[in-house]
């Protein structure tokens, strides 16, 4: 088919007609394939600001579209559709619906930061990927990813106790992501730990699982940290117009 760069055109926008005559001219068949015009009319002019309001997205406005991040990207090497440069472009242009087409792969960034070290303008693309993934979650476009669940479980525990107790983190993480705790690899790991670790350490670990230790006098610090987190969340929610979003959703349901 003689269309230049056909692969750039979405299949649904390509049409051919078995039988078609226009103004007396027969345009049936392959040689007169039509490309439907694509009109983007739902720009979200705040999109860049919204991403910039989330941690990691702050420097997105610096991007000059050189493509170094995509070139360097670990995930792009496996999946060509994973393209940080392109998403940054969509976000900066406010092309939200285009961005949403890729919502199920954006979270796949492995945070290797190769892009960060390649970017000539210090955009911090890894941070932008993280911010974009969080944006998708908070706007309700995607489910919370396993890594978000992990981060939350981890943070909640630290805020509450001032300490990290791994087995508790793992248990909560598994339960929130709906996975069974008795994973074969987990059982194997525990078995080997039992065999290899000194008795004293094992006893301490066992105790920690039971009593959930806390840093002394933690409650004040905990409250302060929680207050800060709530403040940040509130700011972000405002930047993302989440309240309005909820309001519209309510009205939709009512109507």
């Amino acid at each position: 088919m003689p269309i230049h760069e056909k692969s750039l055109i979405r299949p649904e926008n390509l049409t051919t007609h078995e039988e078609l005559t226009l103004d007396g001219v027969d345009v049936s068949g392959h040689w007169s394939t039509f490309i439907e015009t694509r009109v983007v009319n739902d720009y979200n002019e705040n999109l860049q600001e919204e991403i910039a309001a989330l941690p990691g997205g702050e420097e997105i406005h610096r991007c000059w579209q050189c493509g170094s991040c995509t070139n360097a990207c670990t995930v792009n090497a496996i999946n060509e559709d994973f393209n940080p440069r392109y998403w940054i472009y969509l976000i900066r242009m406010g092309m939200e619906s285009e961005l949403l087409r890729d919502k199920d792969i954006i979270w796949q960034c492995v945070s290797c930061n190769k892009c960060t070290y390649a970017c000539p303008r210090d955009v911090f693309p890894e941070g932008v990927m993280k911010a974009t993934a969080h944006w998708l979650e908070r706007k309700g476009h995607t489910e919370k990813s396993p890594s978000t669940h992990f981060d939350e479980v981890f943070t909640e525990q630290i805020v509450k106790t001032g300490k990290i107790e791994e087995s508790r983190t793992m248990r909560r993480f598994f339960s929130r992501t709906g996975q069974a705790l008795a994973q074969p690899w987990m059982i194997e790991m525990v078995k080997r730990m039992l065999r290899g670790l000194p008795i004293g350490l094992l006893t301490r670990m066992g105790l920690a699982t039971l009593v959930a230790p806390k840093t002394n006098d933690w409650s004040k610090a905990s409250a302060a940290i929680q207050e800060y987190i709530d403040e940040q969340h509130e700011k972000q929610a405002q930047a993302l117009s989440l309240a309005e979003l909820v309001e519209t959703a309510k009205q939709d349901v009512a109507a």
Partner: peptide
């Protein structure tokens, strides 16, 4: 329009890798 990621060699030729950003192609 592309900023090159890396220049390597296959033993005979130099291999230039990047993304043609205008057509979104490696």
């Amino acid at each position: 329009k592309a900023r090159i990621a890396e220049v390597t060699s296959d033993g005979e030729k130099l291999i230039v890798k990047g993304e043609d950003t205008l057509v979104k192609r490696p």
